[in-house]
Amino acid sequence: MTAPFPTRKQEEWRYADLDALQPVWERFSEPMTVIVGAGEELEEVWLPVAEDVQVRRVSLALGEGAKARLFMLNTAPVYGRIELEVTLAQGADFELFGANIGTALSTNEIVTKVKHVGIGGRSRQTVRSVLNGKAVGSYLGKVEVARGAQQTDAEQSVKAMLLDRGATANCKPELEIFADDVKCAHGATVGELDAMQLFYAESRGLDPASARALLLEGFVMGLWDGAKDGDAIREAAREALRSVV
């Protein structure tokens, strides 16, 4: 049984490339389920594959005190979508570090729904996008804090760098909170490299173009600083950046 094909009226599909999705929908209509049991830990690196359309839909359940840390690079030549629904039981900890690197006419998006259902859960989502040409890069992130999920601590940090006028970044952090003792922070910026970092690099002898290229690399590579096994994703991101910068 194939689930009904999505429409753009659904908020979580609003920026999707449905024409590109249609031919492959059958393969991805049901999300894959991943369960991390109480007290267990999961660390995964999601690398791009060699296909024009790359879709990953995952439903992740974190048991009490479970930890999950995901590193993902979304850089499909036509359409890339990483969709994740996460449920956090009491004291669970979820970290996401994701990048959209897009060129030409591509659309790449990371769409998350993080549901805090137990007390004291913590979630961190960090997404960086680098886009040129007429590429579209999106992050749609919804955080839901259920009634009773007190002491939830949720953070979303979204930054995008547009290298051409025609490129588009959509950043949409969204909160739905039904508890009164929670910490939910989000920040989104689109734009410029940090002026102080640029000056620091130039003061060491890098010309402005090299300093920009280096900082752009750092803008993305900083995501993988905490990965235990980050070599492959570092290399893949470097290669993707070379085609964009």
Binding site: Q197, Y200, L214, G218, F219, V220, L223, W224
Partner: peptide, 11 residues
């Protein structure tokens, strides 16, 4: 200044 993602050696 801090520059995440770039090692001191590379910088």
């Amino acid at each position: 200044v801090e520059i995440p993602g770039i090692s001191y050696l590379q910088f």
